[in-house]
Design a protein around this nucleic acid. Structure first.
Lengths: 377, 377
DNA sequence: CCCAATTTGGAAAGCACTTTCCCGAGATTA
DNA sequence: TAATCTCGGGAAAGTGCTTTCCAAATTGGG
C-alpha cells in the first residue's frame, strides 16, 4: 500500500504516441509506471476527451469557466496521468515567470542566510521559486547573476549586501539592473543605497555611533577598531559612525588603531593580531565591525592569554543568532536580519512599484552584554 | 547617464499588441533606448538581416556552424539591442532546463547552509541555477517542493536531510520522487538512505560510536545524551551509535539520561535543563547530538553556574565552522559539510546515472577539544 | 414562438525559442 | 567533365502551454 510500484497501474498511456507526436519513445518504458515519459496537457485533454483549450482552462485557474462535468473529467485525467503543468512553458506563454533571484556573497555566512530565511518567509505563500547565488568567488558575480535572472525573465531580483563600492563595478551593475527593470523585472537591495533601487538600509553609522556612546558611558576610554576590507561600504559606515559617536563624547581613537581585515572570522583574528603586535598601551575596548570578526578577535585574545572583558572589552555588530552563545556574550548592535529580508521581499513582490526608488532605513539596537562589562576590578 | 528615468523612454509598450507579431515596434521606439521593451530573437535576426534560424545558431552554441560574417552581424545586433536569450523558452524548446532544486529544512541553520555552499561550488561552473526551498514551516514541504521542481522540469533535485522518518511522509515523498525521475529528473539526498536515490550518507552511528569510545578513554564514566526530536533519524542514529560505543567499553548510560529535544539551540538548552532537573548525581559528560544543541546546553550549564569541562564535560556533533570559536572549544565529530554538498551535486549533475542508487558513506572524524578535557582537578 | 443575450467548447494563433529538412553553391573525386 | 560531397543558409515544424476568436447551444424576454 505504501508502495507505488503497482503493476496494475500500467495501462494508462499505452495508446499514445502512435502518429506523429512523441516518436517511438516510451513504447518499452510506458508499461512500467503510470507517468512514464513526459505527459503533456495534450495527453490529458485526449484522455479526458476534451480540447486542449478546455484542459488548459481547468488546470490553470482561468477566467473562463468550464462546465462541471468536463472539468471533473479533466481532473480525473490529471491524477490518472500524474500530470503536472510545465511551468516553463506556462511562463513562455503568459510572459511572466514565478522565479525570483537572490544574490548573496556567501550563503554560509549567517548574516546572509538569516536575511535569506526571512525573505523566503514571504516567497513561500506566493508560491514563488527562490534562486540563490553565492557570488563568493567572482568579482563580477552580482552583475552576471542579474544578467542570468534577466535571461530567466525572473519576476524580481533581491541583492543582499552589494559587494563593493568600486565605482566601475557599481556602474556595470547599475547598467545590468537597468536592462533588467526595463524588461519588466523589479529589483530591491538590502544594504547601501548605491543602486538606485528600492533599498532596505541598515543604519550602520547611526548604530555604530550609539554603540560608541554606550561604550564610553560604560567607562571605556581608548579604542581599537577592526574595520572590514577597504572599499566595502558596510564596514566603512560602521567605522565612521563609530568614530563619530566617540567624537560626540570627546574621545578620539588613535588612527593607527583602526586596522582593516576581511569580513570573516579569520579576518577578525588577524586584525586583532595586528593590534596586539603594535605594542604600546593596549586599548580598553575593541570594536569589530561585525560579529563574525569579533569572534575571530575573541579567539585571538584568548590565544594571547587575555581575558574579555577583564583585560580588554570587545564589541561586535549584527547580533547573529548563532553567535549569541559565545562566551562572554558579545555586546553588539542588533539588526533584525530576518525582518529585513521580509521587507525587501515585500517591497518588490507584493507592494506596488513606486515611481521613485524607496529607501527604508532599519535602525540597529545596541545590546550591551558581558563582553564590554566593566566590573569592579 | 547613471539615471535610468529617461523620460524619452516612456513610449515603449504603448504601441504593441495590436495585430500580428511585433507591430510597428522599432521604427518609433528604437530611437529611445537600446533595450526598450522585450527584445526577442526575431528582433535580433531582423536587425542583423538574417533568418531566425541563423540567429539562433549564433546565440546558442549550436552544432551547426555559421558563416563568419553573418555571425558577426548577429553578435553586433545582440549587443546593440541588449538582447538576452529567454532561457525559459529555450528550456521549453530543448526539453531540459538548467535549474536544480535544493531542499533544506532551514537555510539559516549553519549545517544546511554549509552543505548548500559546497553544492553551489559545483553548480556555478556548470552555469546552473540553484533554487532553494526552506521547508521549515510545512510538514509536507519536501514533497511539495519536489512537485514544484517537477513542474519546472528541473534537471535535478538535491534533498538535504530528510525531514522525518514518518513512514507515511516518506512514502509520499518517494512517490513524488518517482514521478520526478520518471519525467527525466535526477535526485540525490544528503542524509539517511531512505529514499532509494543516490545518497551521501554521513556515518552518524559510527562517528558517535567513536566519539563515545574516545570520551570513555578520556576518563568519563557516566553520560547524559541530549537526543534530537523523536522520529528524526539523524538524531536517532547518533544516539544508537553513541550507546553502542559506550557499550563497547562496558559503559551503560542511565536510560533516563537520554532526553529528547528540538534540533536547535533552544532544544539543547531545554534538554539540558531537564537533565539538571532530574537531580541525583550529575553525569560526567553530556553528549548533544549536534553542535547547535551543544551550544544551547553550554548556555544552560553556564546559567546553572557549572563550568565546562571543570564540573561537567560536553560534546557535540558536526563541527560547525561558525561554532568553532565557542568557549570552551567543543569536542565534536567533524563532518565535511561543504564537501558532502559537492559530492551530492556531482553525483547528480556531472556523474553518469547509475542503474542502482549509489550510497556514498562519509565518515566523521572525532575532534577532541577542551570541552571534554579532564585536566587534573 | 422567435430573436437577442448569454454561456461553453474547440480551432487556431500566439509565445520565444530550437532543430529538422531542404536547397543551392562551391569543393572534391573519378 | 560529370557526379558526388560537403557546407552554410532559410523555411517551417516542433516544444508545451495560454488566450483569442468563433460557433453552437442554452437561456431569457417579449
Amino acid at each position: 500500500m505504501t508502495d507505488s510500484e503497482d503493476p496494475n497501474a500500467s495501462s494508462p498511456g499505452k495508446d499514445r504516441g502512435s502518429a506523429g507526436r512523441h516518436p517511438v519513445r516510451g513504447s518499452a518504458v510506458d508499461m512500467t509506471s503510470p507517468a512514464s515519459a513526459r505527459v503533456t496537457l495534450q495527453d490529458v485533454a485526449d484522455r479526458a476527451g476534451v480540447s486542449l483549450a478546455t484542459a488548459s482552462r481547468v488546470i490553470s485557474e482561468s477566467q473562463r469557466r468550464v462546465g462541471w462535468q468536463l472539468a471533473e473529467r479533466v481532473r480525473q485525467a490529471v491524477t490518472e496521468l500524474e500530470y503536472t503543468a510545465n511551468l516553463q512553458a506556462r511562463a513562455v506563454a503568459t510572459g511572466h515567470s514565478s522565479i525570483v533571484g537572490v544574490v548573496v556573497h556567501d550563503i554560509s555566512d549567517p548574516y546572509f542566510s538569516s536575511i535569506a530565511a526571512g525573505l523566503m518567509h514571504v516567497t513561500r505563500p506566493l508560491r514563488l521559486l527562490v534562486c540563490l547565488s553565492s557570488t563568493t568567488e567572482l568579482e563580477a558575480g552580482e552583475r552576471e547573476y542579474v544578467a542570468l535572472m534577466r535571461a530567466q525573465r525572473a519576476r524580481a531580483v533581491i541583492i543582499i549586501g552589494s559587494r563593493s563600492a568600486k565605482p566601475a563595478m557599481v556602474a556595470e551593475l547599475r547598467a545590468e539592473i537597468a536592462a533588467f527593470t526595463s524588461s519588466g523585472g523589479r529589483v530591491a537591495c538590502v544594504g547601501q543605497d548605491l543602486l538606485g533601487v528600492d533599498t532596505i538600509l541598515p543604519e550602520n553609522a547611526a548604530g555604530a555611533s550609539s554603540l560608541a556612546e554606550a561604550l564610553v558611558s560604560q567607562g571605556h576610554q581608548s579604542f581599537a577598531v577592526l574595520a572590514g576590507p577597504p572599499g566595502l561600504l558596510t564596514g566603512q559606515d560602521r567605522v565612521t559612525g563609530f568614530t563619530a559617536g566617540l567624537a560626540a563624547r570627546g574621545v578620539r581613537p588613535e588612527p593607527s588603531h583602526i586596522v582593516p581585515g576581511a569580513f570573516t572570522r579569520d579576518g577578525g583574528y588577524e586584525a586583532m593580531s595586528t593590534v596586539l603586535a603594535m605594542g604600546g598601551e593596549l586599548p580598553d575596548c575593541v570594536f569589530a565591525v561585525n560579529d563574525v570578526m569579533a569572534v575571530g578577535a575573541l579567539a585571538r585574545l584568548r590565544a594571547a592569554g587575555l581575558s574579555v572583558p577583564g583585560d580588554i572589552a570587545l564589541a561586535g555588530f549584527d547580533d547573529i543568532t548563532t553567535l549569541r552563545d559565545v562566551y562572554p556574550p558579545l555586546t553588539t548592535v542588533r539588526l533584525p536580519l530576518a525582518r529585513m529580508g521580509e521587507m525587501a521581499a515585500r517591497l518588490v513582490l507584493t507592494d506596488a512599484p513606486a515611481g521613485q526608488p524607496r529607501v527604508l532605513p532599519v535602525p540597529g539596537e545596541v545590546i550591551l552584554r558581558d563582553s564590554t562589562f566593566r566590573g569592579p576590578r
